[in-house]
Structures are given as C-alpha cells and as structure tokens.
Design a protein around this nucleic acid. Structure first.
Length: 514
RNA sequence: GCUCCGGUGGUGUAGCCCGGCCAAUCAUACGGGACUCUCGAUUCCGUGACCCGGGUUCAAAUCCCGGCCGGAGCACCA
C-alpha cells in the first residue's frame, strides 16, 4: 500500500510542468510584470500573460507587478470595472501582485522624462500632419521639425499641455534614425493630444503618452528584470532601446511568444464580444459562450487546469492553434474525482413501467454519489420515470434496457412509452448503451443547462441543489456547474431559444465540458 | 513593398545555443482490447513528425546558404 502510494507520487512529480529557465535570472531578484490594458475583462489570452509572468516570479522568488497600460482614453478606452476584474482573475489563477501600477495615474512622471529628453535634444515636437510624416518616414528623410532647438520644442510642448493646440496638430517624437532599415523604428511618437475624458482620471490631462513611451519608462522605474509578452510587441523593444540608451539605462531581458488561437472561439475579439453583448446576443462578459476568464470560471474550470494548459504551451515564438479539448482534458483530471454524480435527463419523456409489485415500489434506489470518495444518493422507485428522448429513440419494441441500479425493463409500446418490468437483477441487460439514467417525477425538478454551443433543457435530481456553486457530473451527459435555483425571469428560459413551459423554480447549471 | 520572427506526428510540446547517446520526448487526439451498473475515470496495445534543396562534417532535427510556407510590425492602438 505504502509502496503503491510512493509510486503514484513519483509519477505526479514527473508530470509537473515547468517553464524553461529564464536567462540571467537570479533567485530573489527577478521582477516580472503583467501589463494589460483594461479595455475589457481578461480573456484566456490574458491568462497566458498572468500565468507565465506569475510563474516565473514565483519560481525565482521574485516580484510580480501588474501594470495597467491605460494611456488611450479613446481608441482603447479602459473599462472602469475591468481594473478590479483583472486583479480578481489574477488572484483566482493563484498569483499575487506585489505591486499595482496605474499608468494613467502617473502621467506627470512621463512628462518629466520626456522633458528631459527634449532638453537633451533626443525628442522633439513634430508639427507634421500624419500623412506628411509618413512620407518622410517611408523615404527615410528627416522632417523639418526634427532640428527644432530644445527651446522651440519645449514651447510647443507647453502649448500642447495648455490645450492650445488641436488634436493632431503636434506630437512629441523620439529621435531614432530616419534611415533605420526598419521603417517601424523611425522617429516614433511618444505623446499625442487627446481631448477625451479618461475613465480613471477624468479631464485632468489632454496629452497622453503612447504605450511605447509609457512602458519604456515604467519598466525601468519598476525595476523590471524580465519582460515576457506577445510578439506583436517585438518592435517595442527596438524602439524603446533608444530611450534606454539616452538615459543610460539597461533594458530588461525580453522573450516573446506567438499568437494563440483557440479553435472553439475563432476570431472573437474583445471589441466583437462587446458589440454582441450590446446587441443582446451574449448575456454579459461571463456568458459561457465567451472566452473571458470570468466566463471560464463560471463554467466551473479549475484555475489549476488553466495553468497547466498554458504551461504546456510553453513560451515559443511560433503561433499556436489549439483546441479547448486540451483544456477539457486538463480540467477533467482535476474535477473527475471531486465531482459528485447526478442524473440529468435531457428532453425528458415520461415512461410507464407495468408489472412492478407494490413491494418493489416502496424502496429507495441507492446510487453511488462519487466513485472516488464513495457515498450514496437515493431515488424513489417509481412506476413512472423520466428518461431521455435521446435514449428512447434508439430503442425498439422488445429491447431490454437497464434503468441504472433500479431494474431491467422491456419496451412494449414505443408509441406510448410503455415498458414492462423484467427483474431487479442486472443479468439480461446488455452493458454499455443499454444502461440508462432515469428519474422519478417525485425527485426531479426542472433544469436548464447553459452551454457554450447550445443550451439543454430537462429534469434533474432535486438533490443537486445542495451542490450550488460546485461542479457535478451529470452521468452520461457532461460535467456541469450548478448555479442555483431560480424562478421568474432569472430562469433564463425563453431568452435563449428554449421554449418556456412552466413558470416554477428551476435549477440552472452551466455546461463545463464533456 | 520594407523589416523582423518562426517552421518537429492531427494538435501542442521536448531536443536546436554546446552536432554523435534522437530509427526523436511527453501530453492530447485518433484506432483497438480490458475494466466499470455513466457516453466519465482507470488500464493495456497501436497509428503518427524533424518544410524542401544544397553545403560543412566521419557524423546534422541540431551549424551555413538558398527556396517555400506561416506569422508579426511598418498607427498621433494596446
């Protein structure tokens, strides 16, 4: 017994997922960061950033800072609630932020830095129109404003701050190299004028830094040692290194990962989700059809599964296209032994069993509650039971089927759903698909299961109401998370394509995965 | 078009830096058997990959060159 246990432990140890070592990482000195823009809630994609950065901070006994790069109140307008949602999600995934930074609250700091750069002649006020500058850039020619004296640039900068200029009239550019072979690097924009109230800081500022500038300054100020992010930001490094050189700072070690595409969610972006929510297609940011962490959590996924899923993806620079099935497999490993078992009869039909003796009707049928932990649950024996139409269709008259743990019955009239009692013992019934789940009307209640592809309606054991908030397995159906008992409009029926039948109470559950 | 980056089974991933121990790891998927009063779990077996072409070398998934394919950036977005 002890030996066996030891073996098991060893196997578990082996399976433990690990990230590759971080270059130049010293235990206790690593500072990682996760830098989202809260223009919507965290998605599965954000989870990768939280997990990889959080994990490195953890294994190196380092620090994790979460920084909100919320410097565009218009195009990527932050969402007020999302700030805290990010913090919650991070915590749910098992990581704690040692420091929380809000870029929009630190704008004066960026002002100071750019002013220094202007004074040193490394940044200048550019009055070119957008298209005008694009032509200079593509041709590799310096624009006329590049040689403005620091004093002249400062004057324009002051006018920008004072709100004396229109949007687009002037920007601050960082001097790089107008002949740089990569046009993306040439004299990039550090500040622009935006007349728009910011959700967090209101109308306090009209000049906002771009991500490249803000994050360059903050990474240094926060003492970030390693940056791991998507490869869409790979150019940032080449741009920001100019600033680092001007200030004599050392650029953190960087690593970039490729794009993750999850088959099941296709091209659902934050902005399309928002649109669909506004249109009413999705019920909210935690609608089970949406790839947000809130929705994933509501569906009953364990954070440990999400973590393993992303660790298995590694930090490679190539793009990956992966299926939710992998996540299901990870989650199943964790919840299979935790989840209690119940019967949920989808599309119930009431079947009548003839020939049951009174004695056989006075008993309660015992069913295993949990194959790993043991325990039993009870259902009343009954001469009328709900079975699923999905099962009913498959049977022919004369077939003997097993009502799991209850009795064997023979179908005698398929039209009227009439069965005949055969016996209590197993023998005579074929194993496999002929063992079906069932429910006595007295022990059942209405149930709606909200799924990611479609919803399911049926009857469930009354006893599941004890499982509120937990994931259970509806035998021969799927793992589901029980949300609770609802009535009235809370029921959710009728809104999602399932016909309203009754108006009483029902159990609402969320489909986790098969 | 310009600039970067990447290409290992169906899907991910290890190995590549420091060539041989790689007829290539692990997971998942798939096929089949066992077990189980769930279509879940467990268990056993099986299928299946180094993008192509040159070069260097006694030896290349690993180094070099060329091609092909894929991706990202070229915003007063993040």
């Amino acid at each position: 017994m002890i030996e066996k246990y030891g073996e098991k432990e060893e196997v578990k140890e082996k399976k433990k997922l690990e990230l590759p070592p971080l270059p130049n990482a010293e235990k206790g000195k690593v500072v990682m960061r996760f830098a989202p823009n809260p223009n919507g809630p965290a998605t599965l994609g954000s989870a990768r950033g939280m997990i990889v950065n959080g994990e490195y901070a953890r294994v190196y006994d380092g620090k994790l800072v979460i920084r909100f790069d919320d410097t565009d109140p218009r195009t990527k307008r932050p969402m007020l609630e999302a700030y805290d949602w990010y913090l919650e999600d991070l915590e749910w995934l098992g990581y704690k932020a040692d420091e929380v930074v809000y870029a929009s609250k630190r704008i004066p700091v960026y002002y100071e830095h750019v002013e220094k750069l202007i004074e040193m002649g490394y940044a200048y006020a550019c009055l070119c129109k957008r298209d005008e500058f694009k032509r200079y850039r593509d041709a590799g020619i310096e624009c006329p404003h590049r040689n403005l004296s620091p004093e002249e640039s400062m004057e324009v900068w002051q006018q920008m701050l004072d709100g004396k200029l229109e949007e687009g009239e002037a920007v601050i550019r960082i001097k790089t190299d107008m002949k740089h072979k990569d046009p993306a690097i040439r004299d990039w924009v550090a500040f622009r004028i935006i007349y728009e109230s910011h959700p967090l800081v209101g109308d306090k500022y009209v000049v906002y830094p771009t991500l490249d500038f803000e994050s360059a300054i903050e990474d240094h100020l926060c003492n970030i040692t390693h940056i791991i992010r998507g490869k869409d930001l790979i150019d940032s490094e080449r741009r920001q290194k100019y600033i680092y050189a001007y200030f004599g700072w050392e650029y953190p070690v960087t690593k970039h990962w490729g794009r993750v595409k999850i088959h099941e969610f296709g091209k659902l972006s934050t902005s399309t989700i928002r649109k669909e929510i506004e249109k009413g297609t999705f019920k909210g940011w935690d609608d089970p059809r949406v790839p947000t962490l809130r929705a994933i959590r509501r569906r009953g996924f364990e954070s440990e599964a999400i973590r393993n899923f992303f660790l298995s993806l590694g930090v490679g620079e190539n793009d990956v296209s992966v299926s939710m099935k992998n996540l299901y497999a990870e989650n199943r490993k964790i919840i299979d032994e935790k989840a209690n078992r119940y019967f949920f009869v989808e599309k119930p039909v009431l079947a009548r069993i003839e020939g049951l003796e009174t004695g056989e009707l006075e008993v309660e049928v015992e069913l295993p509650l949990n194959p790993a932990k043991g325990g039993i649950r009870r259902l009343k024996a009954s001469s009328e039971v709900f079975i699923s139409e999905n099962d009913m269709q498959r049977f022919e008259e004369g077939d003997v089927v097993r009502l799991k743990e209850f009795c064997n019955v023979k179908l005698v009239d398929k039209e009227k759903n009439i069965f005949e009692f055969v016996g209590k013992e197993m023998e005579g019934a074929k194993k496999g698909k002929n063992i079906i789940h069932w429910l006595p009307p007295a022990d059942s209640m209405e149930c709606l299961v909200l799924g990611s592809e479609r919803d399911y309606y049926g009857k469930v054991e009354k006893a599941v109401i004890k499982e509120k908030g937990k994931v259970v397995q509806f035998e021969r159906f799927a793992f589901c998370r029980i949300e609770g008992v609802f009535s009235g409009i809370e029921r959710g029926i009728g809104e999602r394509g399932i016909e309203e039948t009754e108006t009483g109470e029902l159990v609402r559950a969320i489909y986790t995965h098969p």
